[in-house]
Amino acid sequence: MFEVYVGTVVVALIGIYCMVWKKNMIKKVIGLGVFTNSIHLLLIAIGFRAEGIPPIVTLGNINYFALRAVDPLPQALVLTSIVIQLSVTALALGIVTLAYRHLKTLDTDRMNKLRG
């Protein structure tokens, strides 16, 4: 289990690095996707159970079910979150397209009209 958590942190750091230091707008959006997926990985890892069974109650032994079934909630959360990520990415790419039409480049250093 420990390896999964370490992997999550590594993927998250790659995503943050990509979002913060890369100058290309598309790469920033890719970094956003990587960071989001690292959190999804963490959520799935929280719900993981070795040799688990699907969380569907059948007529079998309920104690066995409680002992072995994986937690379905994180998977539901991740599904919701994936849908949200899809919409954010679509909007981000739309904005990048519009920015490219104005600036004729994807370099964020050229985005210097406004200063904090």
């Binding site: 979002m19 956003l32 981000a92 904005i95 519009l98 104005h102 964020t108 985005m111 009209k113 406004l114």
Partner: peptide
């Protein structure tokens, strides 16, 4: 200006 503001807000807001 609007697009630039939106892109900055989007990256920061998503993080």
């Amino acid at each position: 200006g609007a697009i630039e503001g939106a892109f900055k807000y989007l990256i920061v807001g998503s993080i």
